[in-house]
Amino acid sequence: MPLVIVYGSHDCGPRRQQQFLNHFKCLRIVENWDGDAPLRNGDLVFTKNKPARDFAHTRVLSVENAKAEVCNG
């Protein structure tokens, strides 16, 4: 299962979040992540700031890049 972190200013409603969830093949949404709370494989994480540390086996994308990827399929 992928772990995907999307950072930046996002005004993603439920529909957009569901599109991200489906596109990235994640299982649950974690909103307003503080950078310290534990995460697990299958999480789609939304946070305002780019994570300060690297995570193994994790995709980290800006909101803009995530939207472009979803729109371009």
Rank of each mutant, 00 (worst) to 15 (best):
M1K: 04
M1H: 12
L3S: 03
L3V: 04
L3N: 03
V4G: 02
V4Q: 00
V4C: 07
V4K: 02
Y7G: 13
G8Q: 10
S9W: 03
S9V: 15
C12N: 13
C12V: 14
G13V: 13
G13N: 12
G13T: 06
G13S: 06
P14C: 14
P14N: 12
R15D: 15
R15Y: 13
R16C: 14
R16S: 05
Q18R: 14
Q19W: 04
Q19F: 01
F20E: 05
H23G: 05
H23W: 14
H23Y: 13
F24T: 01
K25R: 03
K25L: 00
C26A: 12
I29H: 02
V30R: 04
V30K: 09
V30E: 03
E31I: 06
E31F: 02
W33S: 10
W33Q: 12
D36T: 14
A37N: 07
P38G: 09
L39E: 07
R40V: 03
G42I: 00
D43H: 10
D43R: 02
L44V: 05
L44H: 04
V45Y: 01
V45P: 02
F46I: 10
F46G: 08
K48C: 04
N49K: 14
K50P: 03
K50C: 05
K50I: 09
P51E: 11
P51I: 02
P51R: 06
A52Y: 11
A52D: 09
R53T: 12
D54L: 10
F55L: 08
H57R: 01
H57K: 08
H57A: 08
H57T: 11
H57N: 08
H57M: 03
T58Q: 10
T58N: 07
T58D: 05
T58R: 08
R59F: 00
R59Q: 08
V60P: 13
S62V: 15
V63K: 11
N65A: 07
N65K: 01
A66E: 08
K67F: 05
K67D: 12
K67A: 04
E69R: 07
E69T: 07
E69G: 04
V70S: 10
G73A: 13
